[in-house]
Design a protein around this nucleic acid. Structure first.
Length: 356
DNA sequence: AACGCGGGGTG
DNA sequence: CACCCAGCGTT
C-alpha cells in the first residue's frame, strides 16, 4: 500500500481526470467568462464558502462593481452591504485593498504570475494558483480542501493536512504532473471531483470515479480515514443580552469596531451576560434615552466556528430623543435593510424592528 | 505553529 | 451534536 504522495505515480491520473472533467464539469457562473477579475472575485468569495452560498452573491457583486477600478473606489459600507451574510468580512476589505494595489502598481491590470499575485492582500497560495492557472493558463497547482481530500485518498497518504509542509509537498508533486496545455482545467477537475464524487460528509461515490481502480484507499476500503486532520478545539460560549431599542419605527444600531469579530458591520446594542430589567433600564438611560416600556422576547443562539452566542432579547421602547451620542444611529427599518450590513447573528431579533 | 475569522449544509 | 466548506492574515 502506498503511504506518501511521493510514492504514488500521479502521472497516470491525468488523462482519466481530464476526460471525466470534459464530460461532467459543473456549470458555474464564474466559468462563463473567466477573466482574471471574474476568477479573482469568485475565488475570494469561495474561500471556506460553499459554491451554493456564493451563487447568490457573485452576479450582484459584479453588476455593482464590474471592474478593478470600480472596486477600488467603492465606499466601505457599500462593500460590506454587498458581502452581508457571506461571512469572513475581512475578505472583501482585503479584496479592495488589493484592487487599489493593482490600480497603483499594475495600472489596473491584474498580474499573472503566482509570485506577483501572492503579494496582493487576501491572495494566498491556493488563490494565486487558481487565478494564474484558470485565468492565465499558468502551470501552477491550486490546492484547496477538495484537492487535499482527493489526493490523500487516492494515494492513501495519512499526513496531517493542517501542516503547511504537507501543502508544499502536494504542490510540488502536482507541479511535476500538471499538464502545460490545460492547467486551469486540471485544477478545476480536481476540485469538481472532490465536490461531486470524492465528497466530504459521508461516503464517496467511488463507482462514478475515473480513478476507481487506481485509488489506494478504495482498494483498502479506508476512504473515510482521509484526509487526516486534527480535531478543532471546543467553542467558547458567550452570554449576551441584545436590545431592540426603538422609538416609533426607528431602531438603534451601532457600528462594530474596525477589527475582530464582524469588524465594521452594524449591530443591535448588547450587554454582557444576563442583566435584569433594572440594569437594562439603567443601561438604556446611560445611552441617553428615556425608556417607556420593556418587553422580553425569545432567546436566540448563534454559532460561529469558534464562539457561541447565547442571547436574551428585550424590546425597549423609548421616547423620541433629540440628540444621541455620535456613534449611535436611529434608523428606519427600510433604511437598515437597504444600506446597513448587519450580520446573521442578529437575524432572530431583526424581525422585532419591522413588526412591533 | 496556533489562532481568529461567518454562516450554513449535511450525516 | 460534529464536521466541513474553491483559505488567509496575524501573532
Amino acid at each position: 500500500m502506498e503511504q506518501y504522495i511521493e510514492d504514488y505515480n500521479l502521472t497516470k491520473l491525468t488523462t482519466p481526470l481530464l476526460k471525466w472533467f470534459h464530460a461532467h464539469a459543473r456549470s458555474l457562473p464564474w466559468r462563463d467568462e473567466p477573466t482574471p477579475y471574474h476568477v479573482w472575485v469568485s475565488e475570494i468569495m469561495l474561500q471556506q464558502t460553499r459554491v451554493e452560498a456564493v451563487k447568490g452573491y457573485y452576479d450582484r457583486f459584479l453588476k455593482c462593481l464590474p471592474d478593478v477600478k470600480a472596486l477600488s473606489e467603492c465606499p466601505e459600507d457599500e462593500l460590506l452591504k454587498l458581502w452581508e451574510g457571506l461571512g469572513y468580512y475581512n475578505r472583501v476589505r482585503n479584496l479592495q485593498a488589493a484592487a487599489r494595489q493593482v490600480m497603483e502598481d499594475y495600472n489596473g491590470i491584474i498580474p499573472s504570475s503566482p509570485k506577483e499575485l501572492l503579494q496582493l492582500k487576501g491572495i494566498g497560495s491556493y488563490t494565486a494558483g487558481a487565478i494564474s492557472s484558470i485565468a492565465y493558463q499558468y502551470p501552477q497547482p491550486a490546492v484547496d480542501g477538495n484537492v487535499f481530500r482527493v489526493i490523500t485518498r487516492v494515494c492513501a497518504d495519512d499526513s496531517d493536512i493542517s501542516k503547511p509542509a504537507f501543502r508544499k509537498r502536494v504542490e510540488k508533486a502536482l507541479r511535476e504532473v500538471i499538464p502545460e496545455d490545460a492547467p486551469g482545467d486540471y485544477n478545476q477537475a480536481l476540485m469538481d471531483l472532490g465536490a461531486m464524487v470524492c465528497v466530504p460528509n459521508g461516503r464517496p461515490h467511488c463507482e462514478e470515479c475515473p480513478w476507481e481502480l487506481m485509488c489506494e484507499s478504495r482498494k483498502a476500503g479506508t476512504q473515510l480515514e482521509y484526509p487526516n486532520k486534527p480535531k478543532k478545539a471546543k467553542r467558547k460560549i458567550e452570554k449576551k443580552t441584545v436590545l431592540i431599542i426603538r422609538d416609533g419605527d426607528h431602531v438603534l444600531i451601532q457600528k462594530r469596531p474596525k477589527t475582530g469579530l464582524l469588524a465594521g458591520l452594524y449591530e443591535l446594542p448588547a450587554m454582557e451576560g444576563q442583566p435584569g430589567r433594572r440594569e437594562i433600564i439603567e443601561y438604556v438611560e446611560r445611552l441617553g434615552f428615556e425608556p417607556l416600556h420593556i418587553k422580553k422576547v425569545e432567546d436566540a443562539k448563534h454559532i460561529f466556528s469558534h464562539i457561541e452566542w447565547h442571547m436574551k432579547g428585550y424590546v425597549v421602547s423609548v421616547a423620541e430623543s433629540t440628540h444621541l451620542p455620535k456613534e449611535l444611529l436611529m434608523v428606519e427599518f427600510a433604511t437598515i435593510q437597504r444600506e446597513y450590513a448587519i450580520p446573521s447573528a442578529f437575524s432572530a431579533y431583526l424581525k422585532y424592528i419591522k413588526t412591533f
